[in-house]
Design a protein around this nucleic acid. Sequence first.
DNA 1: GCAATAGGGGAAAAACTTATCCCTATATGA
DNA 2: TCATATAGGGATAAGTTTTTCCCCTATTGC
Lengths: 127, 127
Amino acid sequence: MYERKIIPNLNCGLDLIGEVLYGKWKIRLLWFINQGYKRPSELQRKIPDASRRVLNIQLKELEEHELVERKIYPVIPPKVEYSLTEFGHTLIPVIATLGQWADEHEEHLREVIIKQLVSFDSANISN
Amino acid sequence: MYERKIIPNLNCGLDLIGEVLYGKWKIRLLWFINQGYKRPSELQRKIPDASRRVLNIQLKELEEHELVERKIYPVIPPKVEYSLTEFGHTLIPVIATLGQWADEHEEHLREVIIKQLVSFDSANISN
DNA sequence: GCAATAGGGGAAAAACTTATCCCTATATGA
DNA sequence: TCATATAGGGATAAGTTTTTCCCCTATTGC
C-alpha cells in the first residue's frame, strides 16, 4: 500500500470533495453502482479501460469513505455486491448534474480537447 | 512540457469532464475567477496551498479548453486578467452543486476522511 | 489433473502530477 | 544599489496514481 507523504488539507468543501472523489474512476463507479451494476466483474466490464486492480482499490476507498457498502456472499465461486449507502445516494444528483453538463456540451468539449491534444503534438514535432 | 504517452479515451461525458476538470486546482480556479479574483497573483493568494507553477499550468489548460480567457495589459509591471468564457460560465452551476453538497455534508466528510487516514497510519505502524 | 470462475492483493514499473528552484524582464520605492 | 511587485517558463526532483504481472482462495466440470 502506498504511504502518503503529504498530509492533505481539509479546509474547505472542495478539499473534502477532492479526497473522496478524486480518482480516475470513482464517479463512474458510483454511477454504475447506482444503475444496478453491483458485482465487481460487472463493473469491470462496464469500465474496460480501467485495470481490475485500480477498480478494486478505488472501490475500497469508496467503501472506507462510506459511499458504498460491500456485501460478501459466502459461496464458491465468491460473490460480492456493492450498493450505495444513504450517504452515497446523496451524491447521485450531483453526479447527474455533472453528466448532464457534459452531455449538453459534448461536441464542444470533444472539439476543444482534441484541438489541445493536436496543438500539443505539433509543438513536439517542430522541436 | 510533459508528453502524454497514453491517448485518453473520449467516449462518454465523464471522460470529457475528466479531461477538462481533472486537475487538483481547476475547479477552485474557475470558482474564484467567477467570484472576481481575476489576476494570477490574486488567485495565488486565494489558493496558497498550490505552487505558483501549477496554477499557471492549470490556468493555461483551462484557457486551451476555452473555459477561461486571458487578457494581457501591456504595462509594467505586467498585468493579466482572467475571466470566464461563455462556455466557462455554464460550468458555474455545476460547481455550485458540488460545493453545496460538500457544505451540506462537511462534518460527515471530514469524519470519514480522517477515519481513513488514521486507519491507514495504524496499519503502517503495526507492520 | 487441469481449466474456468469469481474476487482479491503484493510488488514493481510506468505514467502522470505537483513541487522546488532558478531564471527572464521592468518600474517603483527605500 | 537593492529589494519588491508582477507574470511567466525551463529543468529537475518528489510525490502520487495507475498499469502490469503474478500470485492466492475454493469449487465445478471436463
